[in-house]
Design a protein around this nucleic acid. Structure first.
Lengths: 223, 223
DNA sequence: CCATAAAATGAGTGATTACTCACTCCTATC
DNA sequence: GATAGGAGTGAGTAATCACTCATTTTATGG
């Protein structure tokens, strides 16, 4: 288990330093680009390697020089994006950020929400592929699971317990608090980037009001 | 547009009266059962008609006697489940329920949440197929879209405006209020039925606490 | 018990699939 | 300018795909 964690951290470091990791030749980059486009558009199973090759302007054999199998190509796309998605929770700064005693919890949620919204906008195609293929690729599923449990949840639970002790959060199980936060933020992001991508919104305003609802609910404030 | 709506309502009526609609022969039922199993397990594109036939204990040609194409088989599974999912919002009782002036809004949300949780538990395989294939099947997408916009959203917006006028709900755009409710409830349902199906919970308790958070948020109550 | 039709069959169809491999091309090193 | 090796190629392969159709089995009614 520790070995695998170390591998992921190495992946993360590689990703943080140089985007694209081991991509060297120009054709390889074109293959990745075309594969992302087609996987996102019609799904992994319905995408053919011949179509990817022709879209990339490359012979079909070239794909298999760089990626052993079609699934290998998928995993080299979906794996890294899962790590990137969780990246803020893996950084040292984040651990420190959680322990600043004076910070208000809603500012923390707001900061994370804005950061991940921006990330989702920049990598929506990749996230589509990840969301779509995680249920069918066991390797992906376990990677995402462990990433969430061992890094995201572990740290957020600590933060929630801390803010509960301060009286800033209700005395509910941390997982329910976290699930509520994730549900509202993910619901907002998916609505604006996937379901209604054409409706223009004031993004910051939308995030602020969503965090307001997370904190204080939808009940009338009159009383 | 009106014609299509009428078609859907007919579908709904058929579904409400007799489950399974036009299923007549026993073999046809076996085909549907096997197709649901395999579509849910490996996805539509990765499922082969030969595998479905063998699982159903039927010759491959028999499938195409009842369903013109493989996509036809998918749509005959995913279409009806979309209608069933929205069914409570299409019923007359529901319209009346929304207009009872004495009702508290959180009771309304609680009732809907419990009902749809039960529905989701009973039909999780079908919902998996629906969720997975909607992005790739334009017919499905438009059907789900119009179903939501013309029935679910239209009615819920009316209800929300009503409760806002009573001061029971915050003065936010109805779509944001509805999206928050859906996000929290769907997040809870997917968590317990898809992500962590093995963890046993007190379902009613879980729904009640989730609706509490929807109404009053996660902020501490101390002050 | 036969006649008729619907239901079911499964071998067969051409198209497409992921993947291989013998080969060419390009660049760098001495 | 000879050599080596990785990058790229594309025709070829066996397997599988969704779908067809001539034929057989089953069900129905007189």
């Amino acid at each position: 288990m520790t070995e695998r964690n170390d591998l992921w951290l190495q992946d993360l470091l590689r990703l943080a330093e140089e985007d694209g990791g081991g991509v060297k030749t120009e054709k390889q980059a074109r293959i990745l680009e075309a594969a992302i486009e087609i996987f996102a558009e019609k799904g992994y199973a319905a995408a053919s390697t011949s179509e990817i090759a022709s879209k990339a302007g490359v012979a079909e054999g070239t794909i298999f020089r760089h990626y052993k199998t079609k699934k290998d190509l998928l995993l080299s796309i979906a794996g890294p994006i899962a790590v990137k998605l969780a990246a803020p929770f893996l950084m040292r700064d984040f651990a420190k950020m959680l322990e600043q005693p004076h910070e208000r919890v809603e500012d923390l949620f707001r900061t994370i929400a804005k950061d991940r919204f921006q990330f989702a906008r920049q990598h929506m195609k990749l996230l589509r592929i990840l969301i779509h293929e995680v249920p069918f690729q066991p390797e992906l599923l376990t990677q995402v699971r462990e990433l969430f449990e061992n890094h995201v949840y572990r740290r957020m639970e600590k933060a929630i317990l801390h803010f509960q002790a301060q009286g800033q959060l209700i005395d509910a199980p941390p997982w329910r608090v976290l699930r509520s936060a994730i549900s509202l933020v993910v619901g907002m992001i998916l609505t604006h980037l996937l379901l209604l991508p054409d409706e223009s919104i004031d993004e910051d305003e939308e995030i602020d009001r969503t965090i307001d609802i997370l904190m204080y609910g939808i009940a009338g404030r009159s009383e």
